[in-house]
Write a protein that binds this DNA or RNA. Structure first.
Length: 802
DNA sequence: CAGTGAGCGAGCTTCCGCTTGACTT
């Protein structure tokens, strides 16, 4: 069958839906995004000839292009229906160029909603390609290429191979580095927070009122003086103030806000959220998930209205239009919403359900009435003092959108308090205290970024796009600039002073502070590269750089500026910086001298060495090294920039010889998998609560015995080359380095070697995995190896010579 | 799987934004 009309869109899922709306005479195909890009070798841009780009068909797009070429030749009319933004226009243009489309039979169309009406309307209003918009995209593309491909090689030379820099990723790293430096420089200050519990002063009433003092004390003296005063003070209610308040729903989800909420509510990483959303999109459950628009189609608004009215009643419905505020938003799509707002749930995996329901709630709530509430502030005065206690109550008068959706926030404060009811109270009522309590608290540094809060910040700065938030984070982690980690906090002491029945009691208490979960931390390399870029390319790494060039892209798009001119004014001074940084700037050094070791008098320093950050005890002089420096790696979480002399000195205490057992020495050290004790050739991990610096021989022996017992229990059957082992997830068969499943109902005691062989055959024999010794032998034998293995070989040869 | 910390070198690495699979664990 051949059709007269060929429509090309970006995504296959979109093609499928659109095809339904158009007649048999239309064939809808997908380009799968961009089909061409700048050549990868060299710059792909001819600087000498007015920045002429060299485009080539992307490796994975040859098949698509071949098919589209064939179909477009057969069609009467080709409709280029990619998105209405800069990138979409460029995709259409590349298609026209690559497929050699005859302009007379090619139409460019755009639509904002995927509905029959919108699409048929678009078909009635075709236009030609907007070359100015295409030029704006080319400028964007070429600028990014010039920055990335001219700066990265400088890093390879000066810092480390395979590093990278770019307009987006380098700013993301900068945000994380600067936040960390803020935190390193932060000195927490303590203050005292006072709270009180009151009761009525007469036997007729019965209630308890919890309240907080309206000031915080800076010093212990002030706090104690106040509590002393409280012993004999009189308390009465001096004010009851009621104020109406209202809350409005948040706009529907964009990519960035969806990533943030899914992270706060479910702990999803931004990548996870996108993968799940992609599946929902492909299943036709939600609209497109890479968008910066908060706009809802009229269909969605109507459907939401009907749903709300039938589920909760008309008074819960309120039609709202949202305007997208974010910088550089291009609004090619709708907000992320359920395709059918009438479906509150779907079938699917647990994660798909969760994410879908979140999207449904947010969308529906965005079309619901405000919540109205009444806030009451009660003031309790203290005779003879200007300080007052306050209690705040909140009563929900009408829940409105809160019926379906409550947004989470980033603040890690303890209780953001839901409904908080106050007892019935009268003005001037006399009160007595049951307890007044002052607690020492500490000021908090700014929070470290999570993936999602970094995305939020990037969006605010207009850096990156919905399709690149998740990949950018992967990139900066893969380059080693940043790690995503949990950190256990440290124990901290604080004071608690309480007043009960006229007696003041002081107590020292302990709490853990500074624990972090899934936060982004810069590495030493990340900080070093950031400093290098700041010094040499401050222009490109400036927080406003993207916003500035975006303004110029807009001028290109409106025909006021020629793209080659724009690139030229950027490139000339930029390239000058590149040359300058190559010649003059010395390789960035990252070392720091921490001081001297009081025991040996030797210098203690830290720096980045071949295999990462190290601490060094002593100085290496070029003369005969009679007295060579001692080296040790820094621990995970320690930074060259912030490690103290004490912390560094402690590193040299390991490895520690703690004694002997069964004739073997016991060595305690910290390895890749954490602290361990070595016993001959065996390694036994220390427990969570064991400190490698203080662990005793007795404890080490205990751990070794435990491990022995476990290993013994591990083997259920031993048939020589086939073993039945007890693993973390239950028993399994082990054969030639591979694991094979045991059926759930297998009676493990009656298992025979024959039965095991049968099971292995059933599951398909996997190629034997060479064990370590075999692997080592292989590489030593020296096959005609690739680059990596030869490099390793060189090292090992050197070792044996030594 | 848990040490190392360096004198000669071939050739490689990299950007941002559009889009999906094809791969393991």
């Amino acid at each position: 069958m051949r059709q007269d009309n060929l429509v090309i869109v970006e995504s296959p899922a979109k093609a499928k839906t659109i095809e339904k709306f158009l007649g048999d005479n239309f064939l809808v195909k997908s380009s799968y995004g961009h089909i061409r890009d700048l050549a990868k070798k060299d710059l792909g841009v001819d600087i000498e000839h007015n920045y002429k780009p060299e485009y080539i068909i992307s490796e994975d797009k040859h098949a698509v292009v071949r098919e589209l070429k064939k179909l477009s030749r057969e069609a009467q009319t080709v409709w280029l229906a990619s998105d209405e933004d800069r990138e979409g226009e460029a995709i259409a243009w590349h298609l026209q160029e690559t497929l050699n489309l005859d302009k007379n039979k090619t139409n460019r169309i755009v639509f904002h909603e995927i509905t029959k009406n919108a699409i048929q309307n678009a078909i009635k209003n075709p236009r030609s390609i907007d070359i100015n918009l295409v030029d704006a995209q080319q400028a964007r593309r070429i600028l990014d290429r010039l920055v990335g491909f001219e700066v990265s090689p400088i890093l390879w030379k000066k810092v480390k191979p395979a590093l990278s820099a770019g307009r987006v990723q380098s700013v993301a790293v900068r945000l994380i580095v600067e936040r960390e430096r803020d935190i390193i420089g932060f000195k927490p200050e303590s203050y005292y927070k006072v709270s009180a519990i009151f009761n009525p002063d007469s036997a007729d009433d019965k209630f308890t009122l919890k309240s907080e003092l309206n000031v915080r004390f800076k010093t212990l003296q002030e706090t104690e003086a106040f509590l002393n005063h409280c012993k004999s003070a009189q308390y009465s209610i001096s004010g009851i103030e009621k104020k109406p308040a209202k809350k409005s729903p948040s706009p529907p989800f964009t990519t960035s806000t969806l990533q943030q909420e899914a992270s706060r509510k479910f702990g999803f990483s931004v990548g996870q959220t996108m993968t799940i959303a992609q599946r929902l999109y492909e299943a036709g459950k939600i609209t497109y998930m890479r968008t910066d628009s908060t706009n809802l189609s009229s269909f969605a608004v109507d459907a939401a209205k009907n749903t709300i009215t039938s589920l909760y009643g008309a008074k819960y419905s309120k039609v709202r239009q949202y305007k997208t505020k974010s910088k550089g938003a291009q609004e090619a799509h709708e907000a992320i919403r359920p395709t059918e707002p009438g479906n509150p749930t779907i079938s699917g995996t647990a994660q798909e359900k969760k994410l879908y329901e979140l999207i449904w709630k947010r969308t529906v709530a965005s079309q619901m009435s405000d919540a109205s509430l009444e806030r009451t502030v009660v003031t309790v005065s203290v005779s003879g003092s200007d300080h007052k206690f306050q209690a705040v109550g909140e009563v929900l008068l009408f829940d409105g959108f809160l019926k379906v959706y409550i947004e989470s926030n980033d603040d890690e404060t303890e209780d953001s308090g839901s409904e908080n009811l106050l007892p019935p109270l009268k003005e001037n009522q006399k009160l007595v205290y049951t307890e007044i309590e002052a607690t020492e608290r500490f000021t908090q540094h700014l929070p470290r970024y999570t993936e999602a809060s970094l995305v939020k910040k990037m969006e605010e700065l207009g850096i990156g796009r919905p399709s690149t938030y998740a990949p950018t984070i992967s990139t900066i982690i893969r380059r080693g600039y940043v790690t995503k980690e949990d950190r256990t906090g440290e124990q901290r002491e604080y004071l608690k002073i309480s007043l009960q029945k006229g007696v003041i009691k002081k107590e020292r208490k302990q709490e853990t502070a500074g624990s972090e979960k899934s936060k982004l931390f810069p590495s030493d390399i990340g900080m070093l590269v950031n400093d290098f870029l700041m010094e040499n390319f401050s222009n490109v790494i400036d927080y406003n750089f993207t916003a500035d060039v975006e303004g110029q892209f807009d001028e290109i798009a409106s025909g006021e500026l020629e793209w080659t001119k724009m690139i030229d004014t950027f490139y000339k001074p930029f390239h000058n910086d590149v040359e300058k940084s190559k010649e003059s700037s010395r390789p960035p050094t990252s070392g720091r001298v921490l001081g001297t070791d009081p025991k040996t008098g030797k210098q203690v320093s830290v720096r980045i060495a071949r295999f990462g950050p190290i601490a060094q005890l002593g100085v290496s002089d070029n003369d005969e090294a009679a007295d060579k420096p001692v080296y040790t790696s820094l621990k995970k979480g320690q930074l060259i920039e912030s490690i103290s002399l004490e912390e560094a000195l402690k590193l040299f205490d390991l490895p520690r010889n703690i004694g002997t057992y069964e004739g073997e020495t016991l060595i305690v050290a910290v390895g890749r998998f954490g602290p361990y004790v070595r016993f001959g050739k065996q390694f036994v991990s220390l427990g969570k609560s064991d400190d490698p610096y203080t662990v005793t021989v007795e404890r080490a022996i205990e751990l070794i015995e435990e491990k022995r017992l476990k290993d013994k229990e591990k083997t259920i059957k031993d048939f020589g080359n086939i073993k039945v082992l007890n693993g973390r997830f239950g028993p399994y068969i082990f054969f030639e380095g591979n694991n094979y499943k045991l059926p759930k109902d297998a009676d493990r005691d009656s298992l025979t070697k024959e039965k095991c062989e049968e099971l292995i055959q059933q599951q398909g024999v996997k190629p034997p995995k060479a064990d370590k010794s075999a692997k080592a032998a292989k590489s030593a034998a020296g096959k005609p190896a690739k680059a990596a293995t030869t490099a390793k070989k060189a090292v090992s040869v050197k070792k044996t010579k030594k």
